[in-house]
Each structure stands twice: as C-alpha cells, then as structure tokens.
Design a binder for these strands. Structure first.
Lengths: 338, 338
DNA sequence: GGAGATTAGGCAATGGTTTGACCAATTCGG
DNA sequence: CCGAATTGGTCAAACCATTGCCTAATCTCC
C-alpha cells in the first residue's frame, strides 16, 4: 500500500491534527519524553507517525534545543591518503553517534580561521575536528569563539588533541633497520615546525643515538611526493651513503622508492627502506616494509573525545595514543657487504 | 572555576535594540533587502552589526527560508583517490557558492538509501551529490523523497549526472598503444555492471576493432588494488601474451605494475602499460603513461549543476563531459621483437 | 464526603530570522 | 490646498519542535 508521493514531509502538526491531540503531546510521545498518555492515544500517535514516515525537522529541533547534531571537520587536503583515512574513521563514528559530518578543506592558516569562524558564528556545528596546524589565525579564531574541538594528529597548546604515537612509530622503524644489521641510517622527514615530523625525527634519532650509531643522515623535504623524491636523492648522494632509510610519511615512502629506482639503487639489496603504511605500500616494487599507523582509529577516537566534550563529560586525558605496529614486507634486508 | 565570559553570538535583536529600531528593519538592512531606510539608520545598523560581528543564525534563517545552504555528498569510499579528487572539486566549488558540505560514506546500496532518506527527511540539505551506484534501494529512496540531485561519475536513469568522458579516455589509451606499434592488446577493467567500467571497455574494444586488431584480452577484476594485481597476472599468463595493456583505473594501474614486476615482466621493455592518471603515477617505477581524467572539474561541475537545479534554473543537458588528456611518461614503448 | 494525589494532556513561550501587510508622516503634483 | 505618492519604517505571522507550567477530571483514602 504505497502512499502517493507526499510533496511536503510530515510535521508534528500533521500527526497531532490527524489524531486530534495537541502538538506538544505528539512531540512528547514521539520523543518518549516524560508525559503520561493513555496507551491508545500513544499508539495512535506512534502509528500515525510511522504511517507518515515522520522525521523531526532537524533545523527546527536544533533551533530549539541549541544542538545541531553536526560535527565540523577541517583538513588541509582531502586527496592526501593520510587525512582521507583519518576522516573516514571520524565520519563513520560520527554517524554511529548520530551526527552528520560537515567537511571543509582549508589551504592555509587564514582559510582555516575563516572557515572555523564562519561555521561557528552561524551555529552550524556542535564541535570541530581539526586536522590542520594550530597556527596564529586559527588559534585567534578559536579563542574568539570557542566551541568544543579536538585536534587530530596535531598537538596544540590550546584544546585537546588525539594523535597516533609518532615517536613510537619512528622508534620501531629504527629498531627494524638496526635489527637487520644497518648502522648507517638515513631519515626523510618534514621540517620540525610540523609537530608530527618533529616527533618522528626525535624518536628515530634517539634510537640511533642510544644504539651508539654514527649520526643519522637527515634529509628534510616537505611531506609530498616531490619532497620525498628529492630528499631521497639527497640521501643517496651522501657519503658514506646510508644503507637503511626511514621515510617518515606514507606518500614520501612511495616517491623515495621511485627515487632510488631512478638512481639505479636497488631496494633492498643496496639500501633498505621502511616507511609508514598504507595500502599502496603492498603494491610497490618491492612491497614496502612499513609501520602501520592506526589512522582510522585516530579519527574514531577523536570523534569520541569530541562527543564527550559536547556532552559535557570531563575529558580523561589530553592525548590518546594508539600503538603503531610493524608490517614486514620486502624492502628491508641486511646491509650489503663492502 | 568560572567559565570565561563566553559571549553569546549576536542576534538581530541585539542590533535592533542597540539602535532602537525594529528587528525586521535590521534584518532587511543587513540583507540589503528591499526597504527604504534613512542613510544614517542604515549606517548605524551596519556599524553595530560589524561591531558585534553579527552572523545570521543559520538554523533560524534556514527554518524560515526553507533553504539549508548545505549540500550532501554521498560516496562509497573516502580513501579512494578517485573519489577524494572528485569530492575536493565539489567541496571547493560548494564553498565558493556559499554552501557547506555534508559528507557521508555508504558501503552498500542499503546504506546509501538510508543515509539519503535520513538527510532528506530531516531536511538537512538542499541537494545531493551522489557518487555511488544508482541501485534499487537508493532509487526507491530518491523516488520516495525527491530532492535536487546529481550523480557524479555514474550515469543514472533517474535524475541527471555529470561524468568524465570515459569512453574517450579509453579510446585515447588504445590509440596510444596502437601508435606505439602494439597489436596484441590487453584490458583490465571492472564488471560491466559498473557503468564507468562498461564505458571504458566499450571505448577500448571499439578502437581495437576499428583498427582490425586481434581480439583484446579482457581481464575483469574489481577496481581495487588486489583486483588489479590479480587481473594483470591473468593477462600476463595469456597466450599469446598481450604487449600493450590498459589498466582502466588509477588504483588498478599501480597494482598491475606491481604484478608485472613480481612476474619478472619488464615495463615497458616486455609490455607497455597505460592507466588513468593521478599523482602517484608519476612516482612509480617506471612512471606510468596515463590518461588524465579531470576529476576535480567533474566535482566542480556537478556542484554547479546541482546549484542550478536548486535555484530552479532548468538544467541545460544531462551529461557534462570534460575531455581527458594523455600524459606521456615512461611505461609505453614499442613492442619487443619476437 | 472531601482533601489530596494522580492521570491525561493542553497552553504558550521560546529559539532567530524572514517577509508580506500595513501605517503615519512627509513630499509632490496640479 | 487636496489627494496621491513616497519615505521610513513597524507589526505580526510563519517556519517546526521542545518544554515548563497548568488544568480539568478522575481516583484514592480516610
């Protein structure tokens, strides 16, 4: 028994008038709210609501309750697999918690700030997941109009953040190379201004130092395909050339491998390589040994923390760490004999 | 612990009372609406609005105007670079047009339908960009509650769609291989149930037929890394082995290359390979010759079309095609001598 | 039989903005 | 100088759902 297509979605008023009760009664019944109603009245309302496929008008409800049921997500680049994976976790969890997700891409600090300011001023969201750097303009915007927010994969002096344990990942990478027998290590990372890069560098260098190895050759280039390619070229030109390299970013790992190949350097025969994991690492030549970062979980946890803040629950701690794990593939071997 | 005085965002009422005019007057002035006001009154209102950093409460406005200023985006997988690129174009254009973007991921038809139904019934959006297959449940959901929508990279019998010219891309790939001297061609694609795969296959096979070549070896595997890997293995095992392969999907191209390498087949010495382009294709070994699909523009155009529909302008046509282009890199060479 | 409690549900304010209808005072045309 | 037009606004309804406060009727219990 199909209804003829209803032009206008049903409202509480439709239900109330059909049954002959007050709108407020209908509201209280459909919300299961604290009111006493005769069972038959209740049933009639519920039946009618179901028949009309009633859904509360989100805007009207939100206007009244001062909750939007929406979460904002601010990130620098949708096409970067790192953010994509994080956001997927976030979006899924948000949906499970009943939120809708509002995604915005911001190229720079100024854009981040203006998007933040706009969404908050228009009261479109209950909270913000922020995956861009916590810089001046953005911090000012947050200060001016604070709403619950959590930084993801970015530590911030302001608010709270959810990150993976970058330092542990880097340590694991160093241990992997050292365990294979390497002593001359190389590191490819972004500038220390980027806090994830800084933590990874710190972890990697610390392990090398603890192991009493000669200084790590450190190539800094931006976390991009081009940056990784060129940084790796620099590393391979160093004398003596490092035999074990940690490319401290997913995208950089792939392009570093391309750089090695184009220089005629064999992996893993001539140099071993460890990177951070994503699916592509399994389909490179050779497949890359990598450290898996639970980005999905990071996104999930970020939303959970944010939800807790919105609900007013006092957050338990400031950083949630999820342990990285090693995925051994084929890009690590003992160093070549000299 | 006293909360820092969280200033409640300014409302029209605040402005109106400060100046001593009616709320409706303030509203009309800030909206530049059709009302005659003395210049000094106007200035006072505008100044006060600026001073208070007034922004209309989106929910309240939307409730009244029956416009949400939000666009929904429905896609199957955020981490797939194809969708990521499309969505980026869409999100950017949406922002430029003053919309916010609400992103949802749907694993299957049922999930798509339920997300569609929910967002529409709650009246959270003005229109939908749909990047998932137009299947039964989803179509039923759209029928039940139609709102402006455009399918992107998916043709649908219902509504309108924006796609890239898949067939032209496939033709270009075929011509590229043929021009290099190949006669035994191979094709890697998804099942014909997927309309993009079908169009690409059709274009590729048509060119081969027109050129009077022997039948194309056709390997169907899902558009995924694993699918591409295994499909390529099948192709390489065929007798006679094709010397020119078109991997008709970005992700499949990379994994097909890995499959070739792991089988000891050299690219381009033993077999040439063309795929669809994305940035990673430039950092593979060898860099892949590829057909660039303007995914970004597709997303952009999709939003523009949707916007036009929402505005009530009659859409001009059903399919917007953007021409694909060839990017020559290093994975195509003449076929080996026998 | 009457005070008090309980039941079942109505009333009206509220949230912030938009918009068509209306109105008083001034200006203008003739 | 009279009627009409313009100027510079105001009023109130509407959008839809939520929620604290009320009330009328019935029921309970001594």
């Amino acid at each position: 028994m199909t209804e003829p297509p209803r032009p206008r979605p049903a409202t509480l008023k439709d239900i109330a008038m059909a049954i002959g009760v007050d709108i407020s009664t209908a509201s209280k019944v459909v919300n299961g709210g604290g009111i006493s109603v005769r069972p038959e009245t209740r049933k009639a309302i519920l039946d009618e609501a179901a028949r009309l496929n009633y859904r509360p008008h989100a805007l009207a409800r939100n206007l009244r309750t001062r909750r939007t049921g929406a979460l904002g997500v601010l990130l620098p680049d949708l096409t970067n697999p790192i953010y994509a994976a994080t956001i997927r976790g976030a979006v899924r969890r948000a949906e499970a918690l009943g939120y809708v997700t509002l995604v915005a891409e911001a190229q720079d600090d100024a854009a981040s700030a203006s998007i933040y300011a706009k969404l908050v001023a228009e009261r479109r969201i209950d909270g913000f997941i922020i995956a861009v750097a916590a810089q001046n303009d953005l911090i000012a915007a947050i200060d001016a109009q604070p709403v619950p927010h959590v930084f993801v994969n970015r530590r911030a002096t302001i608010g709270r953040s959810v990150t993976v344990d970058d330092e542990a990942a880097a340590r694991l990478a160093a241990h992997t190379l050292i365990a294979a027998g390497h002593t001359r290590l190389g590191f490819i990372g972004d500038s220390d201004e980027m806090d994830t890069a800084r933590r990874r560098r710190a972890g990697f260098l610390a392990v090398a130092r603890e192991a009493g190895l000669p200084p790590v050759v450190d190539a800094v280039g931006p976390y991009s395909r081009r940056g990784g390619y060129e940084a790796c070229l620099k590393l391979l030109a160093a004398k003596p050339r490092p035999t074990g390299i940690f490319a401290s970013n997913l995208v950089v790992g792939i392009s570093a491998l391309a750089a090695a190949r184009s220089s005629g350097v064999r992996v893993p025969d001539d140099v071993s390589m460890v990177t951070l994991d994503f699916e592509d690492a399994n389909y490179s030549a050779p497949p890359l040994t990598a450290i898996a970062m639970p980005l999905d979980e990071m996104g999930t946890l970020a939303v959970e923390e944010l939800h807790a803040m919105i609900e007013g629950r006092e957050p338990k701690d400031v950083v949630v760490d999820v342990a990285p794990t090693l995925i051994s593939r084929a890009s690590v071997a003992p160093p070549p004999r000299e």
